[in-house]
Amino acid sequence: KITVTFNGEEKARRYYKKMQKHNLKVEIRVENNQWVVHVE
């Protein structure tokens, strides 16, 4: 499981979509004013 933190929504969403293309289970959320993407 990987957790990647971004300081911008745009970058986070781009990464999220990229990971989805690989058929990975991805989850995006905001934690402590940071955009966090969890990849299983």
Rank of each mutant, 00 (worst) to 15 (best):
K1R: 14
K1V: 13
I2L: 11
I2V: 08
T3W: 04
V4I: 12
T5N: 05
T5A: 10
T5H: 13
F6Y: 02
F6C: 09
F6M: 02
F6S: 01
F6N: 01
N7R: 08
N7D: 15
N7V: 09
N7Y: 10
G8W: 08
G8A: 14
E9G: 03
E9R: 05
E9N: 03
E9L: 10
E10L: 10
E10V: 11
K11H: 14
K11R: 12
A12H: 06
A12Y: 09
A12P: 02
R13V: 07
R13F: 08
R13E: 05
R13S: 02
R13A: 03
R13N: 06
R14D: 15
R14I: 12
R14G: 04
Y15C: 05
Y15L: 04
Y15A: 02
Y15N: 01
Y16I: 07
Y16T: 03
Y16M: 14
K17E: 15
K17V: 10
K18T: 09
K18E: 15
M19I: 05
M19C: 11
M19H: 03
Q20H: 05
Q20L: 14
Q20C: 14
K21P: 02
K21T: 08
K21N: 10
K21W: 08
H22I: 11
H22V: 07
H22D: 05
N23L: 06
L24W: 08
L24G: 05
L24F: 11
K25C: 11
K25Y: 08
K25H: 11
V26D: 00
V26R: 00
V26K: 00
E27F: 06
E27Q: 09
E27I: 12
I28E: 00
I28P: 00
I28H: 00
I28W: 01
R29E: 07
V30H: 13
V30Y: 15
V30M: 14
V30A: 08
V30E: 13
E31C: 10
E31Q: 09
E31R: 05
N32L: 05
N32I: 05
N32F: 06
N33K: 05
N33F: 07
N33P: 01
N33A: 06
N33V: 03
N33R: 04
N33Y: 04
N33C: 11
N33W: 03
Q34F: 11
Q34W: 06
Q34H: 10
W35K: 00
W35N: 00
W35V: 02
W35T: 01
W35G: 00
V36L: 07
V36A: 04
V37N: 01
V37K: 00
V37L: 02
H38P: 01
H38F: 11
H38M: 14
V39E: 00
V39M: 05
V39K: 01
V39L: 07
V39F: 06
E40M: 12
